[in-house]
Amino acid sequence: MDIKNNQYYKKWFKSAWTYVAGAILLSVLQIATFAVTGNPWGVSGVLANWGAWLYRAIGGSVDKWYYFSSEGAQATLEAGFLNHPGTMRNLGIIFGALLATLLASQFKIKKIKSKKQVVAAILGGLMMGYGARIAFGCNIGALYSGIASLSLSGWVFALFLGLGAIVGSKLLVKFFM
C-alpha cells in the first residue's frame, strides 16, 4: 500500500489541522486532565523544578528559598526528575511534536542563523522564565487554565500579556529581524 498517497494519511498526518480543530482537541485533553488529576494543565512550574535539579547537580542548594521551602515542593525535589508527573508531560510535549513532524515526513533540524537569534532566545527565555514564576504560570497555567478555572487572575494576566506582546513586537521588528 502506498501510504504517502493514501487520502486518510494525507488528511490526518500530512496536512495541518485547522486552528479550531486544535482548540477543541486541546480542550478535550485539558478537561480530561482536570477530571483525572484534579488539576489543570501547567507547563512552566515544571521548568522551575528542572532548574532546581540542575542547580543541585552542580552543587547549589535551593532548600532555603521560600519558593521551594514547602513540604510538598521539598518532597517533589527529593523524589527526583524521573518520578515527577509534570516532567513527563513536558517531555511528552516534545516527543508528541517530534512524532507529529516525523509522521508528516517534515522533520528538519533548524540551526541558529544569526547572533540576533541567539540574543533573542536568551533574553526571551530569561524574561519568560522569570515572568512565569512571579505571575504563577505561563500561557498555559496562568492564562488558559486560569481563565478556564473562572479566576480573575487569568484575565489580568491576559491583559498585561497582550501589552507585553505589543512591546515585544516592536522590539522584534526593530532589533531582531
Binding site: L126, M127, M128, G131, R133, A135, I140, F157, G164
Partner: peptide, 18 residues
Amino acid sequence: FGAFIFGIGMVISGGCAS
C-alpha cells in the same frame, strides 16, 4: 509585571512555554 515581561519574552523568542 510577570505577565508583561512574559509577553515581551515570548514574542522575541518565538514561542511561549508550550
